[in-house]
Design a protein around this nucleic acid. Sequence first.
DNA 1: TTGAAAGCGATACCAT
DNA 2: ATGGTATCGCTTTCAA
Lengths: 328, 328
Amino acid sequence: MAVTIKDVARLAGVSPATVCRALSTPERVKTETRERVRRAVDDLGYSPNRAARGLITGRTGNIGLVVPDLANPFFPGVVKGIQARAREADYSVFVADTDEDPSAEASLVRSLGKQVDGLVLCSPRMSEEDLRSVVGDTPLVLLNRRVDQMPAITFDSLGGMRQAIAHLMALGHRRIAYVGGPRTSWSNRDRLNGLRTVTAAAGADLVEVGNVLPQFSGGVAAADLVLAAEATAVVAYNDVVALGLISRFAARSISVPDRLSVIGFDDISMSAMVHPSLTTVALPMELSGRAGVDLLLQLMQHPDQSGTSRELETHLMVRGSTGPAPRI
Amino acid sequence: MAVTIKDVARLAGVSPATVCRALSTPERVKTETRERVRRAVDDLGYSPNRAARGLITGRTGNIGLVVPDLANPFFPGVVKGIQARAREADYSVFVADTDEDPSAEASLVRSLGKQVDGLVLCSPRMSEEDLRSVVGDTPLVLLNRRVDQMPAITFDSLGGMRQAIAHLMALGHRRIAYVGGPRTSWSNRDRLNGLRTVTAAAGADLVEVGNVLPQFSGGVAAADLVLAAEATAVVAYNDVVALGLISRFAARSISVPDRLSVIGFDDISMSAMVHPSLTTVALPMELSGRAGVDLLLQLMQHPDQSGTSRELETHLMVRGSTGPAPRI
DNA sequence: TTGAAAGCGATACCAT
DNA sequence: ATGGTATCGCTTTCAA
């Protein structure tokens, strides 16, 4: 059996209560006894049983994280940030992957919710209605999704699009296509809204060529539509879609960036590796994870307050897939 | 406050003990009372407090997973498999990312070990010695690493290499380079051993061009060495390294596969997306995760037995990066 | 078949 | 400053 607080107490010649205090509120224990306890703890290799502690304190020391798909390169970055910040705050992290299934999301939130002190929902796919209804009394933070009255970490899509369009306009592009992600995706709507605002303000033509799966195949499928739209530049919902576009362009011998410029979103690591490398709007993935945990910690301490949502800066990474507009 | 077993007991007009039995050993409860309890449970939305249960049963219902780096595309696949299988068996999964730091591994194993019923160590980087010493009484399964006497899930590197070399030989290649991963990596040694055996048996020349970081930059760095080695084909430690190689070859206008064939390892999703697409030895990532959990469950039930380690099949995916050897 | 009661290990309150 | 003790929610003997 494992070492318990009683074993420590016995060895140190004090009561369990004192051991507890020596560990959690050392200033309330005489220096000498504190030292004795410390030594006993070390000798026995004692560490408190979290389940027992949780039973009385009502807290678990765990936080839960729900993501749609770990295989999507965006999420591991976020998870790493969450992990790192959680560990600093002495929390462990439950990770659950929903395989892009919105209904799995709800049930996971409910079951995970009981085992944790707080939850981070990363890019949840479920409807706003469902989202509101699953919220029990577990503090919850959204990441990459904004819903009224719920604390959230998001990315500045508008700013990212502004940089992207400024870049394209400076290169002489005037007609720009957008390959959208799933209609149900909040971030797709957010990016599209940003893009509409920015192109309108800049006096560029925006051609929306439809919605595709946020995957390589989605980009492949959209490529021909983009060509038909007679744009000289295309912004994709995300990097993976952009890579699919480029792949299909290559297959059709459409040179990127000579004939067509391509911009993605996310800055997944692969974007810098391919040829041509992908110009993209970088999202601070790890930072967003850390920010999510920070917000959650705040919320867990002051459940009454609604917490301070944050929108994180984005940055355009200019690479090989964008160049001067062809003269038509 | 949450619903407790007492609330259910009161509503059903029975004792807490009966509620407990009705839920865990229904056959020991009269059908009628069982139904009454069932209804009370539903009405109140009761679900047992895991911490309290764990306190008495000594089990947590959690398993822990330690991976070196979630950003490495190999791991998310494994994690997904582990998640899926764990959820089926009604376990939750703690995930910890060590950021490739071997010393972080040991401390994580120790701290996680207390909060879980079993651990899966995925591609652990620590020394065999350390590995043996961190093993407490928590059941532990290795994934992608084999160590005497420890239960493990591994991949058949030898078989993968056999397929790779047979493919290259059939295309007419006779001189083959290997770009190795970290010397400390078990899987690198395993793959290299397999490759040596296979090339020797097939009568091919093997040129080992050194060890690189298992990253894109590692491949970039090794590309020139490969050219200097005058091989017509190169096998890389993994796909990411292979992509780095191809990138550098492209920059030097070395055509793949006309001038040089390239084979990777893992079959990360990006491999099928790039141009030329990458011929690679596919590892069953999700399956390995499931197999790891299966082995762990087995171990948790019979801690006395050592468990049945498994080596999973690998498969060569022939794609665009390999072709006939150039006539010199 | 059911209930009463004794813990599991840690914490927090009330005394001292 | 320290110790005794009730308690968290559940499981599990032991009796009835």
